[in-house]
Amino acid sequence: MAGVTWRRLTLGVAAVYFLVPLAIAVWFTVYNESLGFSLGAYGRIVSAPGFGESLLKSLLLGAAVIVLVLLLALPALLAVRLGAPGLRPVLETITTLPLIVPPITYVVGIANALRGGTDALAATPFWQTLISIQDEDFPVVLVLAYVMLALPFAYRSLDTGLRAVDVRTLVEAARNLGASWPYVLFRVILPNLRSAVAGASFLSLALVMGEYTIAALMGYRTFPVWIVTVSGSDGQLSVALSVLSLGLIWLLLLTLSGAGRKSK
């Protein structure tokens, strides 16, 4: 009985801690002393300039980051597991690095590299590439930076998933039955790693939807940057936006974990 009470108490405290600020935020968006109860703030979101554009941009960036981080981490993890188990600590260290280096350092590094690169490559065809990856509508350079940041989370999620299956035997069984390497990866390994892949994807997406520093300092108007910009002019609107984006991310999380669980 004591255990149950204790559990309820802990849950209650946690709920208060998380839900009270949320409730207050929601209350703030719908109640105004002069106007009373109104959903106007939410209405203003949709009509606010740049909303759809920046949200779409961030979602696209998120999708690109997910694809890239999976394509990078999964084959690497498999290769190390199957071919060179001795290299595992190395991989682990490399994927931890992005957590150690602060984002501001990345920004400085990337900005310097781009500036120096543009000068050095001015006379070559690569100059055009360098310019196009900084395209305002779909900044590939941000995708690359976010892949770096997402790597530690994706790696750990996938590693845990791989631990739960006998990868070597499954791979060899599939190879023995005529499967090519891509077939093994997409039709044998991935389906058995659904929840791990879903976890890695969600973490990557959450990271992209919440990252401000790099995008802002490099001058891109992603969704988080847009929220901050808008909040300066309309307090109620900015909180309504935060509530909305929280709801949106929750929805995505539920979808992804639903897809992960639907393995049977």
Partner: peptide, 20 residues
């Protein structure tokens, strides 16, 4: 010749059925 073009059927020591 790579394993997937060998025309040899194999049964493994550990359970190797695809769980999904």
């Amino acid at each position: 010749v790579p394993a997937n073009r060998r025309d040899a059927g194999m049964v493994f020591q550990s359970y190797s059925l695809f769980p999904n």
